[in-house]
Design a protein around this nucleic acid. Structure first.
Length: 266
DNA sequence: AAATATTACAACCGCGCGCCC
DNA sequence: CGGGCGCGCGGTTGTAATATT
């Protein structure tokens, strides 16, 4: 069987994705979905192969991905499932909502495998007590808070940034949710040029997270404090289609906020 | 402070499967 | 039935970030 030529032979780009590419991919999938991965990059105007687009979407950009470190419970689940299923990462991922097979595989190879090996060398340890508890507070049932990396990637900047909460949205509760912006779209243009971007220091991120929490707390009438990251011209901002009614079920910032707006119509 | 080693994880590669013609 | 194609999976690599010497 003859395979299609590989990306580089077709003059397609490889390597890390830029925020601009992410943005294009997100916008395209929001508008048209991803029925045909092979055709997608061409239609979206990306110099990537379909496979690369699919990987980027499923492993990083998908709105239902849970960002941040794995909880102790998740790690225990992975270990147990791996015991049952072996290296069937996708099967394991299917039982861990919001986690990708790639992420689980990485966690396994970087943390859990080593931990298991360590435990093997200490036979007095109960077979089922395979989690390394040494780093947890022995006097407390609660594990110490781990630092949460909400945007772990080498593209550590989300495609959307917060501005003043001028723009509000309302949520319709259909299975495919549409967001209607109440405010004048021009409020988005305030960050149209990079020099107007808020500085991304610690304060910046606490504001992001606090804004995210506020959005969730506000329920269906949450405020959308996020606008499009200005990689592309912003003729206008228009409502986008979310991926389903469960989009706002969780508390995850990324899931809740990265798809609120897209590039406006031409 | 610089060099080196280690870790973490996004991205790539190749293979196999299923569907369609 | 078999070839072409698209997709998903698991293994592996590349490299930035971090830790250690």
């Amino acid at each position: 069987m003859v395979r299609a030529p590989c990306c580089e032979k077709m003059g397609l780009k490889k390597g890390p994705w830029t925020p601009e590419e992410d943005h294009i991919l997100i916008n395209y999938i929001q508008l048209y979905g991803h029925g045909n991965w092979r055709a997608l990059p061409k239609q979206a105007g990306l110099l990537r192969c379909g496979k690369s687009c699919r990987l980027r979407w499923t492993n990083y950009l998908r709105p239902d991905i849970k960002r941040g470190n794995f909880s102790r419970e998740e790690e225990e689940t992975i270990i147990q499932l791996h015991e049952m299923l072996g290296n069937r990462w996708s099967a394991i991922a299917a039982r861990l909502p919001g986690r990708t097979d790639n992420e689980i595989k990485n966690v396994w190879h970087t943390h859990l495998k080593k931990r298991l090996k360590q435990n093997e060398t200490t036979p007095q340890e109960s077979r089922h007590r395979i989690i390394d508890t040494s780093k947890y507070d022995q006097n407390s049932a609660k594990e110490p808070e781990k630092p949460v990396n909400h945007f772990s990637s080498h593209a550590r900047v989300p495609p959307y940034v917060p501005v003043s909460p001028q723009q509000s949205c309302s949520d319709t509760s259909s299975s495919v949710t549409t967001f209607v912006c109440d405010d004048n779209v021009n409020t988005c243009n305030r960050v149209e040029s990079p020099e107007n971007l808020p500085e991304m220091d610690d304060n910046f991120w606490s504001e992001v997270l606090s804004a995210a929490d506020n959005s969730v707390m506000a329920g269906s009438d949450f405020d959308c404090n996020f606008v499009q990251f200005p990689f592309l011209p912003l003729p206008s901002i228009e409502p986008v289609h979310a991926y389903g009614s469960n989009m706002f079920d969780g508390m995850d910032f990324w899931s809740n906020n990265c798809n609120l707006f897209t590039r406006g119509g031409d």
